[in-house]
């Protein structure tokens, strides 16, 4: 029982990370048709800069963790907005070129991170509580898992409320369903493009800071490796669906944890198998509306 509890809560924590990356990917794809390969880099740059800030003011206080999360969100949001305005917008409606540009950005930025921070991981510390464990059903759960779950849940709730109750949220939801009709109602949908990039980048930035506590380090490749699972989560959840991304993130991460423990480290393979099964049975993903 204690093992199950540990795997389940760790899976939820990892799922929280997947969700923070996948939510932006899914919204960006849903609204704009852009597959954003640079999304992992938004995460990595945020994690690095947040770490730089936190270690300068002393990383072991809750205040510095809060500041790190804020820095992560702001950096991720700004970098993502800049990407949309400078690179993506020039290639409006040319989806393949847009993907290619984000691929170039991903390759170049990871290389740049390696140039600046080196290829070795930079170890991250936080408030002492995060490194301790809490007893749940006999399992000793690392406390950072709870932080991850709480923050991701808060982000999910905020995004859902934003989408539900604001005009921009309304424009985004409508745009995911039928973008050209939104413009035909006289709405400049490109402002929503910049906005989803900013929101997605901010979520990824928060994810970056949390990932550095989950893994215990920051490294230039961190974003890229999470990105691949986030892609899988996005496809399984259904492109453009925020709730689908949340559901699939938890699903994928929990399966991964259980398979890693009970099936001899086959978690990653099981996830890909799961993807294959979902595609065979339901090509649109769990909550996707369109193919």
């Amino acid at each position: 029982m204690s093992t199950v509890a540990l795997l389940l809560i760790t899976g939820l924590g990892l799922g929280a990370l997947y969700f923070l990356v996948a939510s932006g990917l899914s919204l960006i794809y849903g609204l704009m048709g852009v597959l954003n390969f640079a999304h992992g880099s938004f995460l990595t740059i945020s994690a690095f800069l947040a770490w730089e800030v936190a270690r300068r003011i002393g990383a072991d206080s809750w205040g510095s963790l809060g500041l790190a999360l804020l820095v992560g969100a702001v950096v991720g949001g700004i970098v993502a907005a800049g990407t949309e305005l400078l690179l993506i917008r020039r290639l409006y409606e040319r989806h393949i070129e847009q993907v290619l540009v984000t691929v170039g950005l991903a390759l170049a930025s990871v290389a740049l991170f390696q140039g600046i921070w080196g290829t070795d991981p930079q170890y991250v510390t936080g408030p002492a509580w995060l490194a301790q464990t809490t007893d749940v059903l006999g399992a000793r759960i690392p406390n950072n898992r709870f932080l991850l779950i709480a923050v991701a849940a808060a982000v999910l709730l905020t995004l859902l409320l934003f989408l539900r109750y604001t005009r921009f949220g309304l424009v985004i939801r409508a745009g995911v369903e039928n973008r050209s009709m939104v413009t035909a109602l006289g709405i400049d949908v490109r402002r929503a493009f910049t906005l989803v990039f900013t929101i997605g980048g901010a979520a990824a930035g928060i994810g970056g800071v949390l990932a550095s506590h989950y893994f215990g380090y920051v490294s230039p490749e961190m974003g890229a490796s999470l990105l691949i699972f986030a892609f899988i989560v996005t496809v399984i959840g259904g492109l453009g669906s925020l709730a689908g991304a949340a559901l699939a993130a938890v699903f994928v991460a929990v399966i991964q944890q259980f398979a890693n423990f009970y099936l001899g480290g086959t978690g990653d393979i099981m996830v890909v198998l799961l993807l294959a099964v979902v595609l065979l049975v339901r090509p649109r993903g769990l909550l996707g509306r369109r193919g």
């Binding site: 939801r173 409508a174 413009t183 035909a184 109602l185 006289g186 709405i187 509306r289």
Partner: peptide, 26 residues
């Protein structure tokens, strides 16, 4: 398109193109 519409061109498309997942009020 959006600027044309804002100049005062209302559009009712073939096949309605209402946003199916949004409420009528939305």
């Amino acid at each position: 398109t959006d600027r044309i519409v804002r100049r005062g061109v209302g559009y009712v498309p073939e096949d309605r193109e209402v946003f199916a997942s949004l409420t009528v009020a939305e």
